[in-house]
């Protein structure tokens, strides 16, 4: 029980703040509750399949397979796979991190995981279609094309700035 409260401490504080808002500034507080509720529903609608797939991947895909596909020696195929995996996703960016955790646990390189995160954040196919419809195809396609080298650059530089110890920490953290 104590552990539970400790884990949810920050959330409880925020819930209290929001309740205070409802009392002090009813319009803002009420509006924030509405938005939170809507986002919660959206989250609950996209998360179940993502986490089920994550669980299945954890159980069925062997570490050796993942290392071959996205590990040290996977080369260009690994990068491509990371990119497509991220692009095919649906759901907010914060849902990508637990998936990234499983990929790391299974032996994907941190570089490929960063490519995956980059793709999930900017080149998700469902979002691209929506972008094209509201911003126009020129905007969407130019952003898409410019984003690809940027995703690779961000992944490359981030990885280069981390020393072996820091990377090892990330891998160990994922296995726990």
């Amino acid at each position: 029980m104590k552990k539970l409260i400790k884990r949810y401490k920050f959330f409880i504080v925020l819930a209290v703040i929001n309740s205070a808002l409802v009392i002090i500034y009813p319009t803002i507080g009420q509006k924030s509750l509405n938005i939170t509720w809507r986002n919660t529903l959206e989250m609950l609608s996209v998360l179940p399949p993502i986490f089920i797939l994550l669980g299945l991947l954890d159980v069925w895909v062997q570490r050796e397979t993942m290392i071959k596909l996205m590990g040290e020696k996977s080369g260009f195929v690994g990068v491509l796979l990371a990119f497509f995996l991220g692009s095919a996703a649906a759901g907010p960016l914060y849902a990508a991190f637990p998936v990234a955790g499983i990929l790391l646990k299974k032996g994907s390189t941190f570089f490929n995981v960063l490519i995956f995160i980059g793709a999930w954040s900017t080149t998700k196919i469902p979002m691209l279609l929506f972008e094209a419809s509201s911003m126009g195809w020129v905007f969407m396609i130019s952003r898409f094309i410019i984003d690809i080298p940027v995703i690779v650059l961000i992944a490359y530089i981030t990885e280069k700035f981390l020393n072996e110890k820091e990377k090892q920490y990330i891998y160990d953290n994922a296995v726990e």
Binding site: T36, N39, F51, I52, L56, G101
Partner: peptide
């Protein structure tokens, strides 16, 4: 086991998810 792991992964990150939802709302 897969379903158990799915739930564990979800519950593990749930406090952060819920906090994010409230922050975004406010």
């Amino acid at each position: 086991m897969a379903l158990k792991k799915a739930w564990k992964a979800f519950e593990n990150i749930l406090p952060q998810f819920l906090s994010i939802l409230i922050i975004i709302g406010i």
